[in-house]
Computed example of a mutant assay.
Amino acid sequence: MIRKTLNASQLQQEVNRRIHRLQEIVDDGVKIRVPRPQLQEADKTGCNWNMTHFGNAIGFERDIEGVLKAMRAEYNLSTEVKDTGNPFGD
Protein backbone atom coordinates (compact mmCIF):
# COMPACT_ATOMS: atom_id res chain seq x y z
CA MET A 1 0.00 0.00 0.00
CA ILE A 2 1.29 3.44 -0.91
CA ARG A 3 1.28 5.82 2.03
CA LYS A 4 -0.18 9.30 1.80
CA THR A 5 2.14 12.11 2.86
CA LEU A 6 1.30 14.74 5.45
CA ASN A 7 3.36 17.49 7.03
CA ALA A 8 4.09 17.37 10.78
CA SER A 9 1.15 19.59 11.79
CA GLN A 10 -1.35 17.62 9.70
CA LEU A 11 -0.07 14.31 11.07
CA GLN A 12 -0.23 15.59 14.64
CA GLN A 13 -3.79 16.86 14.13
CA GLU A 14 -4.99 13.57 12.63
CA VAL A 15 -3.44 11.48 15.42
CA ASN A 16 -5.04 13.85 17.93
CA ARG A 17 -8.44 13.56 16.23
CA ARG A 18 -8.32 9.76 16.17
CA ILE A 19 -7.17 9.43 19.78
CA HIS A 20 -9.87 11.75 21.11
CA ARG A 21 -12.48 9.83 19.11
CA LEU A 22 -11.75 6.57 20.98
CA GLN A 23 -14.66 5.56 23.20
CA GLU A 24 -12.54 4.91 26.31
CA ILE A 25 -10.99 8.37 26.10
CA VAL A 26 -14.33 10.05 25.39
CA ASP A 27 -15.93 8.21 28.33
CA ASP A 28 -13.16 9.27 30.73
CA GLY A 29 -13.10 12.85 29.44
CA VAL A 30 -9.32 12.75 29.23
CA LYS A 31 -7.36 15.27 27.16
CA ILE A 32 -4.19 13.63 25.88
CA ARG A 33 -1.33 15.81 24.69
CA VAL A 34 -0.16 14.61 21.29
CA PRO A 35 3.49 15.37 20.44
CA ARG A 36 4.76 16.36 17.01
CA PRO A 37 5.90 13.45 14.85
CA GLN A 38 9.65 12.94 14.59
CA LEU A 39 11.28 12.09 11.28
CA GLN A 40 13.33 8.91 11.35
CA GLU A 41 15.00 6.54 8.94
CA ALA A 42 12.29 4.46 7.24
CA ASP A 43 11.69 1.25 9.19
CA LYS A 44 11.12 -2.22 7.71
CA THR A 45 7.51 -1.30 6.89
CA GLY A 46 8.59 1.89 5.11
CA CYS A 47 7.26 4.32 7.71
CA ASN A 48 9.51 7.35 8.27
CA TRP A 49 8.15 8.83 11.51
CA ASN A 50 7.28 8.08 15.11
CA MET A 51 5.73 9.83 18.10
CA THR A 52 6.76 9.44 21.72
CA HIS A 53 6.06 11.14 25.05
CA PHE A 54 2.29 11.59 24.94
CA GLY A 55 1.06 13.73 27.83
CA ASN A 56 -1.66 12.63 30.29
CA ALA A 57 -1.70 9.18 28.67
CA ILE A 58 -1.25 6.84 31.65
CA GLY A 59 -3.66 3.94 31.27
CA PHE A 60 -4.28 4.67 27.59
CA GLU A 61 -0.97 3.44 26.15
CA ARG A 62 -2.55 0.46 24.37
CA ASP A 63 -5.23 2.66 22.78
CA ILE A 64 -2.64 5.19 21.62
CA GLU A 65 -0.40 2.44 20.24
CA GLY A 66 -3.34 1.14 18.18
CA VAL A 67 -3.92 4.58 16.66
CA LEU A 68 -0.20 5.00 15.94
CA LYS A 69 0.02 1.59 14.30
CA ALA A 70 -2.86 2.44 11.94
CA MET A 71 -1.53 5.92 11.19
CA ARG A 72 2.01 4.67 10.53
CA ALA A 73 0.58 2.19 8.02
CA GLU A 74 -1.38 4.95 6.24
CA TYR A 75 0.89 8.00 6.29
CA ASN A 76 4.48 9.11 5.91
CA LEU A 77 5.88 12.39 7.16
CA SER A 78 6.62 14.87 4.40
CA THR A 79 10.34 15.50 4.01
CA GLU A 80 9.94 18.45 1.65
CA VAL A 81 11.34 21.72 2.88
CA LYS A 82 9.49 24.69 1.50
CA ASP A 83 11.68 27.53 0.33
CA THR A 84 10.18 30.64 1.82
CA GLY A 85 12.72 32.78 0.03
CA ASN A 86 14.92 35.37 1.59
CA PRO A 87 12.79 37.55 3.86
CA PHE A 88 15.34 40.37 3.54
CA GLY A 89 15.29 40.34 -0.26
CA ASP A 90 19.07 40.56 -0.74
Rank of each mutant, 00 (worst) to 15 (best):
I2R: 11
R3P: 00
R3M: 08
K4F: 14
T5I: 13
L6H: 03
L6A: 00
N7I: 09
N7F: 15
N7A: 06
A8Y: 10
A8L: 07
L11S: 01
Q12D: 14
Q12G: 13
V15D: 13
V15F: 10
R18W: 05
R18G: 05
R18P: 06
I19Y: 06
H20Q: 12
R21Q: 15
R21D: 15
L22Y: 08
L22N: 11
L22D: 13
L22W: 07
L22C: 10
Q23C: 04
I25G: 00
I25C: 01
V26Y: 03
V26A: 03
D27T: 07
D28G: 07
V30P: 10
V30C: 11
K31Y: 15
K31S: 13
K31V: 15
I32Q: 00
I32V: 04
I32N: 00
I32H: 00
R33V: 14
R33F: 15
R33P: 05
V34R: 02
R36L: 08
P37K: 03
P37S: 03
Q38F: 04
L39H: 02
Q40K: 03
E41R: 07
A42R: 02
A42H: 01
K44P: 02
T45P: 04
G46S: 01
G46D: 02
G46M: 01
C47E: 02
W49A: 01
W49C: 00
M51G: 04
T52D: 09
H53M: 07
H53D: 07
F54N: 02
G55S: 09
N56D: 14
I58N: 11
F60I: 09
R62G: 07
R62E: 11
I64Y: 05
I64M: 10
E65R: 01
G66S: 13
L68M: 06
K69V: 10
A70P: 04
M71F: 08
R72I: 08
R72N: 07
A73H: 09
E74K: 13
Y75H: 06
N76A: 00
L77R: 03
S78I: 12
S78P: 10
T79H: 06
T79F: 02
T79M: 05
E80I: 14
E80R: 12
V81M: 14
K82M: 04
K82W: 08
G85T: 12
G85W: 08
G85N: 09
N86R: 02
N86E: 12
N86W: 07
P87Q: 03
G89D: 08
D90G: 14
